[in-house]
Design a binder for these strands. Structure first.
Lengths: 201, 201
DNA sequence: AAGATCTGATCCGATCGCGTGTCAAATATC
DNA sequence: GATATTTGACACGCGATCGGATCAGATCTT
């Protein structure tokens, strides 16, 4: 009886068991990004994921317990990556210049339609709903935390503005991917900077 | 062989065949609004709809061919009703005062969490995706059409602002329903008016 | 080389929802 | 009152997918 917690660290193909496991997990997450980001979470089954990843179902259940479980993992990887890119850009902006942060965000979300779709649409449905809200909330708190000297301001008002800008950002990026906006990336960033400035109370 | 196109107009329960059919259809649409607006379209089956409506499946297929077909009907009823409420309010605003239109929209979308959810989330997935885009596009064109004297302005810029405001509006209403905003309906309208004014180029 | 372990392809029972069919009860017309 | 039509409750076959099991081939350890 092989205790799963003491997995034999046998090397295979030059990589350890843990590494292989991690690689398979990543391939599943990549497949999830591709399929969730194009078809939508609700339209993807475990079989689809495995076919896309080139694995069999056993390895799916090795890492995840359900489609929603994988969807959460995909979503967290995306949002963590975005935060990782945007946070230093916020610091670089010094709390006053929104351009670096918006550039980082747009480069992360505008460059990949699958990411944009996951953030704008899938992040609000099913198992991702609470994670989606969590991301929006995180972004809002981030903004409030980095907005200096508004003690006199009503925080409720600032909060509304933060949600408004989050919604505007998502919608603009979504519309851009739909071809409704005929703008270059740079022009889009310029517009978003203007919108941010207009919305900052 | 009863020709279906020449359905016998037999009265039943005091109402004609066409009326009964229309009533059943409306009950199905109502059930769709309830279930789609709470569970999400993807989580609702035909059986659920029929149980909610108090009908049997035969009458579902009498009016609709699939769940998505019903979802489109529900969505169109909602958006048509909203347009019907908002359009005269826009005219009342005279092209300069956004408050009447926003009040009408908020009263329609903020008053019913199911409507808000359908507009913000479900309208972007599955069969509703194109209808959702259509509504957003319709709203944007509406704004552009009623925004006076911006011929000098770059229309692309106006377009971005329109999408930005549409996204902001949806996100704020959605956050309000989630309890993230501690505002009354009137306060929310006030904030949205400010946001609109700030975004108008 | 021999044995142990890992991997990939296939198969299987169970479950679920869809779409349709049957039949008795209710209500209309004749 | 007799007959025809509508309605509601239930039952059935079908296909898809899930979650797991089996088994041969590939790869590592000894």
């Amino acid at each position: 009886m092989t205790d799963s917690s003491v997995a034999s660290a046998r090397v295979y193909g030059g990589v350890s068991a843990d590494e292989r496991r991690a690689q398979r997990r990543q391939r599943l997450v990549d497949a999830g990004l591709e399929l969730f980001g194009t078809r939508g979470v609700a339209a993807v089954g475990i079989g689809d994921i495995c076919a896309e990843a080139g694995l069999i179902k056993r390895y799916f259940y090795e890492n995840f317990s359900s489609i929603d479980d994988l969807a959460v993992a995909v979503f967290e990887q995306i949002t963590d990556s975005l935060v990782e890119q945007v946070l230093p850009a916020i610091v670089a902006g010094g709390g006053t210049d929104p351009r670096p942060a918006l550039t980082a965000y747009v480069n992360g979300a505008l460059a990949d339609a699958r990411v944009a779709r996951l953030l704008a649409v899938e992040g609000r449905t099913g198992a991702l709903a609470r994670h989606g809200d969590g991301f929006a909330t995180r972004a809002v708190e981030l903004w409030i935390g980095y907005t200096p000297a508004v003690k006199g301001q009503d925080e409720a008002k600032l909060r509304v503005r933060a949600y408004a800008f989050a919604g505007a950002l998502t919608q603009v990026i979504f519309a851009w991917h739909d071809g409704a906006l005929d703008l270059t990336t740079e022009q889009t960033i310029d517009e978003l900077v203007d919108i941010f400035t207009a919305l900052a109370p």
